[in-house]
Design a protein around this nucleic acid. Structure first.
Lengths: 147, 147
DNA sequence: CAAGATTGATGGTTCAATCTTG
DNA sequence: CAAGATTGAACCATCAATCTTG
């Protein structure tokens, strides 16, 4: 089996570490301000973008790389808090449409007030615009053709 | 509050996505081969490097960015499988020393036979040596001065 | 049968409280 | 009291089985 170069191994270690630093900073900031986890923000953002038509659950799976049962249970909790509603899909009796509520839109905006500054602190303050663009470009290579 | 630039936001999105692609590929490969999760490898590697002296639990916390109770419970499970042993610390009655066993060393090597090729596939095949070095350098900027 | 979604059971993670020793 | 570590309870994630409709 082909083993990784030292460079590749080091890059992976640093990628994991950088992700860890960022995600724990963000989750901690959200939690400290009595907000739900970041995944709730991601879901609300997708639904916000989808507008009145909403999204099917499997579309959320694809967009956020989640499992079917994960979406099912996350969405159940978010709905219970009133930030989205699940309505029967007219064109496909098996499906539900997920639609963000007014409260959901408000929550998303309020979470951004905490989430945004964390990104600023973790990225804008540590990389120049050029460095950030370059990293973005390189990360794109890891993502595209991921299959 | 200072909000992030579009570039920073995009870089963070891609970092999270690239991490997600890599970690799920690795965990899936390990699981498919009946191996435990990646964190077991990380722990065994730290203990392997520490040699006969072993490590204190709080040293593992620092090295792997884990919580005290996480280490406590992970180590309990790994010990139960016989891959490490916990011995009382002679110099500090509060502490335990964690020492890898022969079986633990073997497991770590066998996991690397699956883990290594995944890193190769996910990094070596998608980035040139120069690109990987450059990404590593930029990621270093995100990690250093994380506090 | 396949696709979309849900659920019971299980196992792991997390919080807060606790225990023990320095 | 602080540091190292553990634990009960609650919460969340995961697997496999299931249900419903195309």
């Amino acid at each position: 089996m082909p083993m990784p170069s030292d460079t590749a191994a080091e890059t992976w270690i640093r990628l994991a570490r950088a992700y860890g630093v960022a995600i724990s900073g963000i989750e901690q900031a959200l939690s400290k301000n009595d907000f739900p986890p970041l995944i709730w923000y991601d879901i609300l953002l997708e639904l916000d973008r989808a507008g009145e038509a909403g999204l099917r659950q499997y579309e959320l799976e694809d967009a956020l790389l989640l499992k079917q049962y994960s979406v099912s249970r996350l969405v159940e909790r978010i709905e219970k808090k009133g930030y989205l509603k699940r309505v029967a899909c007219t064109s496909d009796g098996r499906g539900k449409r997920l639609i963000i509520t007014k409260d959901g839109e408000t929550l998303r905006r309020r979470m951004w007030q905490v989430y945004g500054p964390e990104i600023h602190r973790l990225f804008d303050q540590k990389l120049t615009r050029e460095q950030s663009d370059e990293m973005s470009r390189l990360l794109g290579r890891l993502i595209d053709g991921a299959e």
